[in-house]
Design a protein around this nucleic acid. Structure first.
Lengths: 136, 136
DNA sequence: GTATAACATATCTGATAGGTAGGTTTAATG
DNA sequence: CATTAAACCTACCTATCAGATATGTTATAC
């Protein structure tokens, strides 16, 4: 189950995409519109900025803006950054130590199949799709 | 991310399917083979029994057996019972109170699509598929 | 040089996964 | 009918983490 981090991240990116016209959008504007606590939101924007999905500018007139066009943001890239992993089980996490029983594991194929199913789906949807309310 | 409950439940059902020949399999046999603490395993078998996926018999010679053939167990039915929900976000949980913002929610279609994708996949795989090491 | 806003660090709190302990009831068997 | 084996039941413990809050420090525009 996804946490609020990933869900809020999506809402924030949609918010910025819709309200920015090349301008930087300050955090408190976003927090107010999306009804998310400023301080909690900050911790999410840090992730997005460090991950290169947003560009932050300090000082007066500063704020956040997208680093690329909405079509270039896949759901997978956003959720991977904010949730840490999309793997349905721990042994499939990106940084998992290789399991010694993987050869004889009866359940591994299921988890691999599910992992691919989820990954493919989230890779196929972009931020632009959500904004344009495209059927997904 | 799935918890150990669902993962263990799968392993247990496979274990019982492979080691039972109509006989009841006692919990400690399963725990030993699967290297899971007896007491923790017990809490999982309670769920499976109450949910009708296993039949438990008390007393000497007792234990657990399947209530139906492996082809009739879908991954979805097993994981739904042990994980509580398969919904990727809280607002899609079976018992969630209806969200007042669902009409204008930009992210809802994504979560609904993901929910369906996951559900369809897990519905398509059965316990028999895992046992026979079928490609899934 | 002052207002603004991102960036940084530390801490708190409640829920839950994961596990443990001990006792009670049911059924088979000698 | 006593004994044993096993499911079943209730309660508790502990570490982790989501979800926040608080208090700063640094950079930028005017």
């Amino acid at each position: 189950m996804n946490s609020t981090r990933g869900r809020y991240a999506l809402r924030v990116l949609i918010d910025i995409a819709e309200n920015s016209n090349g301008k930087y959008i300050p955090l408190n504007d976003i927090a107010e519109r999306e009804e998310i606590s400023e301080k909690y939101l900050e911790s999410i924007l840090v992730l997005l900025t460090r991950g290169g999905l947003l560009h932050g500018l300090r000082g007066k007139g500063g704020g956040y803006k997208l680093t690329k066009s909405p079509e270039e943001y896949t759901m997978k890239s956003i959720l991977l950054l904010t949730e840490g992993t999309l793997a349905p089980v721990a042994c499939l996490k990106e940084d998992a130590e290789p399991c010694t029983k993987s050869k004889e594991c009866r359940t591994l194929p299921l988890w691999q199949g599910l992992n691919k199913t989820i990954g493919d789906y989230l890779e196929s949807v972009t931020l632009a799709d959500l904004i344009n309310k495209k059927d997904i």
